[in-house]
Every structure is written in structure tokens, then in C-alpha cells.
Simulated assay, not measured.
Amino acid sequence: MELAYFNGWVGSLEEARVSVNDRGYNFGDGVYEVVRAYNGVMFALEEHLARLALSAAAVEIDLPWAPARLKNIIVETLGESGIKDALIYIQVTRGTAPRGHVPEEEMRPNLLVTVRNMPDIPPSLYSEGVKAITMPEFRWQMCSVKSISLQASVLAKRRAERAGAAEAFFVLPDGTVTEGASSNIFIVGDGALITHPADNRVLAGVIRHFVLKVAGTLGVKAMEEPFNISDLMKAEEVFITGTVAEIVPVVNVDGKIIGGGRPGPLTARIHKGFASLHK
């Protein structure tokens, strides 16, 4: 059964209620994580919770729960749901108070955890790859924070969908490609992996982290360094990473065919190596 936990209350998603004075609702004033469970076991929960703590600290939200307590809440909610292949959403907002930009000092954060069935992912996503578009970067300067304020990503995803693409890649004025609207980007050049450094321009994705580790175990050279749009367009392979779909090949960017228009061999090797981590 799909469940919601909210500040100690547990029930169905349909019954869950959040106050209209919640600062997440009024200001997008909060942070979140999404964790995937495989056969009842959450993958990289510790890494996700560590990043949640970093995001909260960056936006000056003091988490009142000890890490062990927070973990137990999530584990117990997943267990109570009975769902084996699940998506677990964890959200912390600054709290509830009458609307005002300056938050009250003694406000207690709100914790929401939802457990949903993992959506079906078509096999063609991996066997055929997806299309992407590029667009100018227009987000804030703290992309390393996993903020619930996702208006820019929503707009980028809408534009990608209208263009028949699955993802939008953000490009800085100097031509540097940073990340996707909901993914990290890897390109392959001369047999090496390249992804943008984990600075304020990108979210340091958990799957991104494990892809870099897998590359090391496979003896594949991996570099965290900036690359530009010309590097992207002439790449041998391109793939994106994220918690839900894991590793997805990109075969077309702005109408330009990448790697012959088919998923590449290194992408397949990396995905196979990653899959072995959660089996």
C-alpha cells in the first residue's frame, strides 16, 4: 500500500494533509531526497541522508532528528507499506507559520516521507536511448542544494517534452554544459568518461557518485571537469544518471545524432556494473 508519513502520522496518500501555512507550500522553503528500493532494500540510503543534511545546512534548516532516528522512520514506513520495488520521497520544510519571508527562529521543521510503487520504465529507454535539448542556464547559484523549489526544472522539462525530448541540458553563457533538469550528464571522449565537477552549478547526484566508482573498478578513466557544447555534440557516447531510471543513453541532442544514434558500449558496461551493486 502506498503510504505517507508526516510528523508521526502514517496513512494513505489520499488522507495525508499539510497545512497551507507550511513554508514548503508557500515558499518552496525546503529540501528533499528520492531513494529507490530494490526488492525491499533501499539503495544508498546513507548517501541520500548525508546529502539531505548538507542541503538542509546550506539553506539554514536545522534538522531536529538524529540520523539514526530519521533512518528508522524511513525504514519503518517502507516496511509498513509492504512495497518491495519502491520510490521513497523524503522532504523537510522549514516548518509551519503564518506567511512571511523571514522565518521564526524557533520553528520546527516538518518531515514528510512517502512510499510509492516504482513506476514502469520501458526497456526501450535503454535499448534505444533518448533525445535531449540544450537551453541557456537560468537557475539560481545554489544548484548543489536539492531544493524543493523546482520551478526552473519544471519549465525546462516542459520545453523538452514539447520538443519531443526526454531531458533538457543547461548551458552557461560561455558554452559550458552543466547538468540536466533532473539528471547528471556524462560524455565519453577517447574512451574516457567526463562529467561536470560537483560544484555549485550541479547537484552531486548519488548515482553519479556510484557511476564514478564503477568506472574505477572497470579500469575506465573518469574525469570531473567542465566540458562545452562542442564536446557534447562530438562525444562518442552521452548518458544521463538519476535515481529513478539509473543510467540512460542519450542518442540525439538538439537534432544532432550522437554516437551513430544508438546506445554505446561503454554506457552499457557502466550500467551493468552499476546494476550489480543493488542485486
Rank of each mutant, 00 (worst) to 15 (best):
M142S: 11
S149Y: 04
Y126T: 08
M118Y: 13
Y89G: 01
I133E: 05
S127P: 06
K131Y: 10
G100C: 09
E128A: 14
T114H: 07
W140I: 04
P103I: 13
L125F: 14
L125A: 13
P103H: 12
S149I: 01
T134W: 09
P136H: 12
H101P: 09
Q141G: 05
K131I: 08
R94W: 05
R108K: 15
R116F: 02
M135P: 04
A132Q: 01
R94N: 05
L87T: 09
P98R: 15
C143N: 02
P136Y: 12
M118T: 00
I121C: 07
K146I: 10
R108L: 14
Q141H: 13
N117S: 14
T96K: 08
I121D: 02
R139W: 04
V145E: 04
E137W: 15
P136T: 11
Y126D: 09
R139Q: 05
P123Q: 07
E128G: 03
F138V: 11
I121F: 03
P136E: 13
A132L: 04
G95L: 11
P98C: 12
P109E: 12
V145Q: 04
S149A: 15
T93G: 02
G95I: 02
N117I: 03
A132D: 05
M135A: 14
M107A: 15
I133V: 15
Y126M: 07
G95W: 01
I133L: 09
K131R: 15
R94D: 09
A86T: 00
L150C: 01
G129C: 11
L111K: 05
K146V: 09
R99Y: 10
R108C: 10
E105M: 12
